[in-house]
Simulated assay, not measured.
Amino acid sequence: MTERTITSKEIVNAFRFRHATKEFDPTRTISDDDFNTILEAARLSPSSCGYEAWKFLVVQNREFREELKEISWGAQGQLPTASHFVIILARTMEDTKYDSDYVRNQMINVQGYPEEVFEQIKGSYKAFQEEGLKLLENERTMLDWAGKQTYIALANMMTVAAMLGIDSCPIEGFDLEKVQQLLAEKDLLEGGKLAVSVMVAFGYRAGEPKREKRRKLMEEIVQWIE
């Protein structure tokens, strides 16, 4: 069996196809195979130091979505109509600090480093967090760093969805404190080890975009240094 090669034109067309879908066709559901492919794109995404400091909540419960809708002004059209709705969480400083139990488990049991090797490279993580990016100045700085990683996964999920002909919409329009509180009440934050980063909805558009996609010219945003 010959594997099919994706062409450059198909990749660009997928990016042209993708738009921030405000309302989906509620009668259409993404297949399990396709949505698992989208989740696999998230799982295989790169992250700083290989920490994978994220978690993905797939919210299919309609009552839960209604609760979210009350405190997510930017998801009023998506929450009731999306085939799948995902809240992406970032790990807090308790887990992402270089000497945490989470990091030790991630490096030894997930990445497969021998314990003695981990002990050697832990010093590099310490220097990176303390001196390189000065991440340990406060908990918010560390959370913002972890949040940056979640956006890599977010972008990969949306790109893969577009290549499958599936629409999406990234969502930052929500009351952070209230969403955080709601998830804490439902015991979804692992006792404070997770925090809300961003949301994203997936489905099939109810109608075509009202505006043509517009972007700056390549020469306006790219500078070659040779």
Rank of each mutant, 00 (worst) to 15 (best):
S100A: 00
V12S: 09
L217N: 13
I171L: 13
N61H: 11
L57M: 00
Q106H: 06
S100T: 02
I87S: 05
V86N: 03
E208D: 08
L154R: 07
V196C: 11
E177R: 09
L133T: 09
K216A: 14
E220T: 11
K126H: 09
C49D: 11
L44N: 02
E185I: 04
S124W: 12
I108D: 02
V59D: 01
V200M: 00
M107R: 11
S100Y: 00
N13P: 09
A53E: 14
Y204I: 05
A162R: 02
E137D: 08
E10A: 14
G203V: 06
E212A: 11
V196R: 04
S168I: 05
L189W: 02
R215L: 13
T159P: 09
E40T: 10
K55Q: 12
T96I: 15
K122T: 12
N109E: 10
K69D: 02
R211A: 14
T5S: 14
H84Y: 04
A146G: 14
E67W: 03
Y51F: 15
A53L: 14
I38Q: 04
L189N: 10
E67M: 10
S124Q: 13
L154E: 10
R16L: 15
E3I: 15
C169R: 04
L44S: 02
R4D: 13
A161S: 09
L79A: 00
E131Y: 04
Q180R: 11
G123N: 14
A90K: 00
L183I: 08
I11G: 05
N61W: 06
Q78L: 11
T37P: 01
S47T: 15
A146W: 06
G50Y: 03
N109P: 04
Q106P: 08
